[in-house]
Design a protein around this nucleic acid. Sequence first.
DNA 1: TCAAGTTGTCTATTATCATAGACAACTTGA
DNA 2: TCAAGTTGTCTATGATAATAGACAACTTGA
Lengths: 241, 241
Amino acid sequence: MSMQESSGVALWRQVADGIERGIADGRFAAGEKLPGEMEIAETYRVNRHTVRRALAALAERGLVRAERGSGTYVEAQRLAYPLRSRTRFSEIVGAGGHEPRGQLIDAGSDVANREIARELGLKIGAPLIRIEAVRLADRTPICVSTTWLSAERFPDAGSVFADVRSMTKLLGHYGVKDYHRASTRITAAIVDATDAARLDLPLGRPVLVVDATDVDMLDRPLVTKRSRFAAERVEFLVENG
Amino acid sequence: MSMQESSGVALWRQVADGIERGIADGRFAAGEKLPGEMEIAETYRVNRHTVRRALAALAERGLVRAERGSGTYVEAQRLAYPLRSRTRFSEIVGAGGHEPRGQLIDAGSDVANREIARELGLKIGAPLIRIEAVRLADRTPICVSTTWLSAERFPDAGSVFADVRSMTKLLGHYGVKDYHRASTRITAAIVDATDAARLDLPLGRPVLVVDATDVDMLDRPLVTKRSRFAAERVEFLVENG
DNA sequence: TCAAGTTGTCTATTATCATAGACAACTTGA
DNA sequence: TCAAGTTGTCTATGATAATAGACAACTTGA
């Protein structure tokens, strides 16, 4: 087997481009298993190691994910999630051509620790409503978030959210016409067992942890929340300037 | 200097693509001299040998031509010359966005040899008019052609051609409203000294030699000719089907 | 539990890519 | 005629690409 041609484009790159084209035009659907490395090698008439080089390049860009002993799978394209002052999950997901969904997992009461008290401008130990929700794009879970609101300012918030299933609508129910993001902090962690189940994510996968506080137009804090995004399904875009 | 990046596209190919883009968008005009190999190497931060590899690839495709001791020049794009039943130099050149020109070099009398006699349906030794002409696109000589016509059928053709400078118009002058190509034979040769001067072509360059006979609508032979095209300035397109 | 099939990793070999330096052959303009 | 600048050719070296084979580690389904 000689195969030279010398086009100036490495063989592995040609294979990678071919597979990427297949993903782009839907020949390989998101989540689907690619043909085995051996099979790909045969269709491109190339050594298996060359295929591995191609797959490694695609994996580095997050387009595919190899699972030892099982196969190589097409990663769902990451949802572009711009972080702006005006951040609405439903608008962002809708703008990406997906249907935004929200689902209440749990709601209950809590008391403010030092951090939450500072964010919401309350005293430590102040009564809170805690809402656990999962947000989806179409049928794919994107993030789970724990939201805290002042129980005095928003009485019965839990049952209201269960009804409207949208934070924007919940706040509107209490007379808040508009709000915006005051602060956003991003870190990353390994998903814990309960979030893994809620996100339908295997254990050991990374999540993006976002702590954010929303305020009304007079900069009075409304809600603070901690969201855990499945890192492999979302991509934050930070506006420059 | 390490320079890796490992994009899967060879460095020489990146350089070649860059130069080709420069030619395509007119940054390097046809006939113009490219920067020296050393200068190109510096602008791309690459070894001179890598530049040579890139230029070799472009030269193989006919986009540039290197002249030892002088420089590397952008080759004029080859004129696309479709070979159809209806073949008119002026129409082909005009369709390519160039201005067709014809120039009489010489006209005289001749007698038919066996081959010409067969093509024109005359007897060997029959009197002929011989017209030598050069055809240009804009100011670039494309081909020189020697055309033979029956002296009995087209008396005084030489002086008529000198006036109208177009074979189509010459035939129209004798009442021929339309004509088409009956046969076309193509070979190649090295340019001879007189043609080289007429085509403004260095000695040793290849020419495409085309023997063709045109007939009227009743398939009666009108003219037969031998044209020599500067191979580097033209590209014949054969209609398939 | 087991066999078949998958990805992961190792060693090894050959060809190409890219760099580097030196010098020859040639053109151009002073 | 000569010097400067150009392309052409040679040798050499290290890095990368592509091949080949073998086996380990793991998943899946029977």
